[in-house]
Nucleic acid binder design. Structure first.
Lengths: 337, 337
DNA sequence: CTGTTAGCGCGTTCAC
DNA sequence: GTGAACGCGCTAACAG
């Protein structure tokens, strides 16, 4: 039999309204009675029921998170950013994995909305018509993180994947490379796949370098597919001299493929990854990459969501965070920069 | 103005009790009226309010998770196991990071309990008197994962860290090593620190090998401290010929320290890590380690919790999962095994 | 400064 | 099979 606000009120000889006031820090309570109430709360071990509070106040101080996979280092870091800011604003997070499965995503969003979360943070590969539809049925704010709404109807925070990829490839071009490989993600993946692919293409185009289909391999973001993609390049007569790999895990695979073939990184082939996950500074040679502020994406997205939830004035509809070329040892030093 | 069960009842021309029945799958409803209700639910876009339901039914179908740090690969994998099983049983999880800070842990547990979670999964370095105290004030089941209750009052699921470490060191001994180093975690850390340290000590003792303090370094589980610990060993006149490192991240650091010094793993020094996180199969040489079923720990702990929540009959108070020596390339092949 | 009184949206007896 | 009515524990006016 859990003890309720009534029990406290009775024991303290006040009304439940007063107890409610001290629990919620309402200043309109005489210090003496506040003290009395606090003491009996302590004595009885009263623990306010947040569910009842939620029903009455229509606020749960809980936000929902839909994410592809928490065991993916990248997302784990984003979630850490989210949770830190959430806890700073006294929100809890309900976390759910979607495996990038649209059915699952929609169902999870629905469940979260039923649980009356005060806001929702969505991360997923693609935002479809169905997503937009269910987003619109929500009566709470929704922010997309590391995800883009092509229709610009919902706020999102992300980096500019196109430009980031373009920067990476232009760096290779600037240091004289013409034979530049790409180990990409599935082109059906809008951001990490297609946008980065487009960036690669544009950089070559701008430099007047013809696109060579032999220099493009599609992977699945896993280590093995990086190995495999690079082994293909190594089998070519005319191998690329530099390879841009669209995520770090595959990039590490690519490095190992080169080393296993008895070649040297960066002397024989330069490699640049993408993301800057912890592993990139735990391999030899240290991986040069394009850093993406994972923690920051989560933190900013959550902060953005609190603004929407508190109806603070929002200036921008979308936040684009900055990426950065991180030069370590899998690319040669560029003295001309 | 969100639409409620009343709206549906009115529109469908039935009572709210009937709507409640169809929503909850109660069989005592004539198929015809069930159909009618279902249709108007669909038409109105009715979404049951889980908070109200929670208040009335005293169940939230939500469990609380307290974890040191979700951005740590090990815990991320455990949480993935938890969430998969949770979603299988239609539970959602509220996730919170404690950074192994006791104050924070206690406060988080309290918040979770206020939110009326149906159960709690706790992961932390140590279980103190204070933890036990607050656990006892909870009216819902609590299970510890990857954590041990020394007083055996609360159920937990974990591996046998002592035996695992002992096995690892005995393997070195069996293959002829006498000079065996240890890069440990803080000895104040009960499981990963102290138990593994004891296992190391016991293995030496059983083999009649004297303990050499010079061969023991304390790290903090991070890559850099693995580097540092190994650099110390390398500075010794009489270097260890094999080193047991109590987690993979430090083990990778140790390998790199050896390689940076121009020596070879495993020919000059053998290395074995602990945990078997993904990175251990993404480095060269591939890291030999002691595998710990991270996903399984999470999954089993969550399943265990559902049993407690559903008052199913529990046979065992505690679950010890099996560890395993995984031999890859940072240890020499043992042909005599 | 404090108490009274309505609900919040739904599950659940208990009659019918 | 179905409906009426109560209560879950708390917040939020509104009085006083």
């Amino acid at each position: 039999m859990p003890i309720t606000i009534y029990d406290v009120a009775r024991e303290a000889g006040v009304s439940m309204a007063t107890v409610s006031r001290v629990v919620n820090g309402n200043p309109n309570v005489k210090p003496a009675t506040r003290k009395k109430v606090l003491e009996t709360i302590e004595r009885l071990g009263y623990r306010p029921n947040a569910v009842a509070r939620g029903l009455a106040s229509k606020k749960t101080t809980t936000v929902g998170i839909v994410i592809p996979d928490i065991s993916n280092t990248f997302f784990a870091e984003v979630v850490r950013g989210i949770e830190d800011i959430a806890s700073m604003y006294h929100y809890n997070i309900i976390l759910s994995n979607s495996d990038n499965n649209v059915e699952k995503e929609l169902s999870l969003i629905n469940t979260l909305l039923e649980k009356q979360v005060d806001g929702l943070l969505f991360m997923g590969g693609e935002v479809t018509e169905e997503h937009l539809h269910i987003f619109k049925t929500a009566s709470v704010p929704i922010v997309l993180a590391a995800t883009k709404d092509p229709t610009h109807q919902f706020p999102y925070v992300d980096i500019d994947h196109f430009k980031a990829a373009k920067d990476a490839v232009e760096d290779f071009i600037l240091s004289g490379h013409k034979k530049i490989g790409l180990i990409s993600g599935p082109l059906t993946d809008p951001l990490m796949g297609f946008d980065r692919y487009k960036g690669y293409k544009k950089a070559l185009e701008d430099a007047g370098v013809a696109l060579n289909e032999e220099y493009i391999r599609i992977g699945d973001y896993r280590y093995e597919s990086g190995l495999k993609g690079m082994n293909y390049f190594l089998s070519l007569e005319d191998k690329p001299t530099a390879v841009f790999v669209v995520n770090d895990e595959m990039a590490v695979g690519a490095i190992h493929a080169i080393q296993d073939a008895g070649l040297n990184v960066p002397n024989d082939i330069e490699i640049r990854g993408f993301d800057n996950i912890p592993i990139s500074s735990m391999v030899r040679p240290l991986l040069s990459t394009v850093s993406q502020p994972q923690y920051g994406i989560g933190a900013v997205a959550m902060r953005f969501l609190t603004k929407h939830m508190n109806q603070e004035s929002i200036t921008e509809k979308t936040v684009i965070l900055q990426h950065q070329l991180v030069d370590r040892d899998s690319t040669k030093r560029r003295d001309n920069r």
